[in-house]
């Protein structure tokens, strides 16, 4: 399985060389680590996934001595590794351009958000093709626009406040609860993807 993760990192190497300057560029002008880190992690993980989406590549991976469980698991473990690499790049960027590293709470929140997003996206991608995820994003965007225009006009403020509340939280038990629920969600998504992929026909 390590070979599969290694393969993804090798395949992503060229793409990362383009993304890294972009990441640093954002950090220079707008050190909002949560948002930047979240977007970059998710984009990289989606790109890694898209490279293996072709049915021919699936045929290759499943004809090689790997099990389907390993193929899926490599993506979930790889997603965490890629998120941590983004965190690492953010730390370097922060130190280079602002002489400070992102606060641990911001980093935690960014990693959590990425894991939540990935938990929802990966099973969806295993079930459907990437083209549908764009439609799904479009649909969510429309729903979001309708919600902020008609039902909850101050949704963005609520979200911003919510983030602030989390960042100012002092109670460690709340953090622990959050981390635990994210781990549960991620594991559930992982198992679900294995289940979906188990009988997939390429």
């Amino acid at each position: 399985m390590c070979n599969l993760i290694w393969k993804d990192i090798v395949l992503q190497k060229k793409g990362s060389l383009i993304l890294l300057p972009a990441l640093f560029g954002y950090i220079v002008y707008n050190p909002s680590y949560i948002w930047i880190g979240f977007v970059f992690s998710v984009v990289i993980i989606l790109d890694v996934f898209a490279k293996d989406e072709d049915s021919a590549v699936n045929k290759l991976l499943n004809s090689l001595p790997y099990t389907r469980r390993e193929v899926v698991s490599s993506k979930y473990i790889g997603a965490i590794i890629f998120t941590l690499l983004v965190v690492f790049a953010m730390f370097i960027g922060g130190l280079l351009f602002h002489r400070e590293v992102p606060a641990w709470k911001e980093t935690m929140l960014m990693v959590s958000l990425s894991m939540i997003a990935i938990s929802f996206i990966l099973p969806f991608l295993y079930k459907f093709k990437t083209q549908y995820i764009f439609r799904a994003f479009l649909f969510l965007f429309v729903v979001y626009m309708i919600v902020i225009n008609t039902f909850i006009k101050n949704l963005n403020d609520i979200l911003r406040e919510f983030v602030q509340t989390i960042l100012t939280l002092q109670d460690p038990s709340v953090f622990l609860m959050m981390i635990l629920s994210i781990i549960v969600l991620y594991s559930f998504s992982w198992l679900l993807s294995i289940r979906i992929y188990r009988n997939k026909v390429f």
Partner: peptide, 29 residues
């Protein structure tokens, strides 16, 4: 699967890679 070699009628390799790069990925398996 360790003991099987396979050839399919369509391309199942990563198209944007070279044979050397493909070897590096497959040999580890």
């Amino acid at each position: 699967k360790q003991r099987i070699g396979f050839v399919f009628d369509d391309n199942i390799f990563y198209e944007h890679l070279t044979l050397t790069e493909m070897r590096r990925i497959i040999k580890r398996a």
